[in-house]
Amino acid sequence: MSKRRPYVRPMAGWWRKNPFFIEYMIHEGTALFVAAYALVLLAGLVCLALGEAAWNGWLGAMKHPLVILFHLVTLAMIAYHSWTWFKIMPKTMPPVVIGGKRLSAAMITGGGLAAVALASLLALGLFWGMTR
């Protein structure tokens, strides 16, 4: 009879055992804030469809100190999502070869963050122009 009895170690709590995994769980956790913000916007859309009174109710709710606080935290978490999204990009996208040389990881991440800055300025400008 075989004396073999391979021991399988449990996975419970794996993500607490390595700083790399803790960071991974935090950046995965940004999804909760993306979802919450999408729901806030969805509520706004429904109110907008319901009419002026409902819309003004939504606008008023947005001014509540706790809602402001929620948006502050959400801003930090979604900004962290942006940073980690482009930080992992060099690993998740196919190699880009320009002029016979492979684009470096720093260039990809930097390019992504530059795109965030550009898109943000563009959005601010457009919003300012449309609501003036």
């Binding site: 790399f20 995994f21 991974y24 060099p90 690993k91 998740t92 190699p95």
Partner: peptide, 17 residues
């Protein structure tokens, strides 16, 4: 896309990619 595989590779392979 945890990416830790590529960090630990002793031969600098990038499995995540």
């Amino acid at each position: 896309a945890v990416g830790y595989c590529s960090e630990v590779c002793p031969k600098h392979v990038d499995p995540a990619n």
